[in-house]
């Protein structure tokens, strides 16, 4: 006599055969279990988050973006739900890494996406561990800024000058506005430096950067930066007109007529000068 389970097995097979050999009409409980599985494993939430981030960020290469996204999600305990909910379990360094990753997802000019990521990063950083009280302290904030500058290949000299202005002391509580300003300033500074680098390439086309011309361009930029004042809209027109191709060309031409120094300006020198123009405008923390 066959055991019981064999009987049931045969009976089920019979039933399945009776229902027709076509695989199309699947047993109903299997369908629900599929949906249940997705819900249980948090795949739905995870996919939704991923697609949301994708739509927010609109990267040039969506596949690479998603691969990176899921790669990040994989090993950590953040198995799908919003990062902010899961960050408390992470130690400081990991939280820092995750916050930085969020900040880098979108460029700062993509306002909505970047602002969302800022919020998530802030929440992630300020979610204290089990013993600690929630809130972002100056140490973690400064660490984050240092890391941003470091990964953006900012030279030590410039990044320390920048950090000196915007960092907070270790014990200080960092409000969101300060956090946003600090982070945005770091990212903008890096972009400013790369723009200055491109500018130097243009000025140095035949590797003959004339010190006078470089200096004139920087001076013109400085004038424009000093002139532009948020409360006087017309000042922007004035600053803009100074930076127009015509005015710049005339200024550079005049510079060439001036006394020749003969010393070409080095790239580092130029970048340093340019960055100091930017740094002058950074408002120190208070």
């Amino acid at each position: 006599m066959a055991p019981d389970w064999l009987h049931t097995g045969i009976a089920m097979a019979d039933r399945r055969r009776a229902a027709g050999s076509s695989p199309v009409p699947r047993p109903p409980q299997r369908q629900t279990s599929g949906a249940d599985f997705l819900v249980q494993a948090g795949v739905r939430t995870m996919m939704r988050e991923a697609v949301l981030k994708l739509v927010e960020t609109r990267p040039e290469d969506p596949v690479a973006f998603l691969a990176d996204y899921f790669g990040r999600l994989g090993p950590g305990p953040a198995g799908g739900a919003a990062a902010a909910d899961l960050c408390p379990q992470l130690p400081g360094q990991l939280r820092l890494g995750r916050a930085l990753w969020y900040l880098k997802l979108a460029h700062h000019s993509q306002r909505t996406a970047f602002n969302n990521n800022l919020t998530v990063a802030y929440d992630c950083l300020s979610a204290g561990g089990k013993k600690k009280k929630p809130g972002l302290n100056g140490k973690l904030y400064t660490d984050l800024l240092t890391k941003i500058c470091h990964e953006g290949d900012l030279p030590k000299e410039i990044s320390s000058a920048l950090l000196k202005k915007i960092q907070c002391r270790d014990h200080e509580a960092v409000p969101f506005d300060v956090f946003r300003y600090g982070v945005v300033t770091c990212f903008v500074m890096m972009e400013f430096r790369s723009k200055a680098d491109t500018l130097f390439n243009i000025l140095d086309e035949d590797s003959q950067s004339d010190q006078r011309v470089c200096q004139t361009v920087l001076d013109t930029l400085k004038e424009a930066l000093v002139a532009s004042d948020l409360s006087v809209p017309a000042s922007y027109l004035e600053a803009g007109s100074k930076l127009g191709p015509d005015c710049l060309a005339v200024a550079m031409d005049r510079a060439l007529l001036g006394k020749k120094t003969g010393v070409p300006m080095s790239r580092n020198e130029f970048l340093k000068e340019a960055c100091s123009l930017f740094l002058d405008k950074v408002k120190p923390m208070h």
Binding site: S109, F192, T198, S228, L277, K281
Partner: peptide, 20 residues
Amino acid sequence: VSSEVQQMWVLTEVMRSNQS
């Protein structure tokens, strides 16, 4: 040159507008 310089100018303004 002008295009780059103007972008640098704008970046500085972006930073300034974020000051709180």
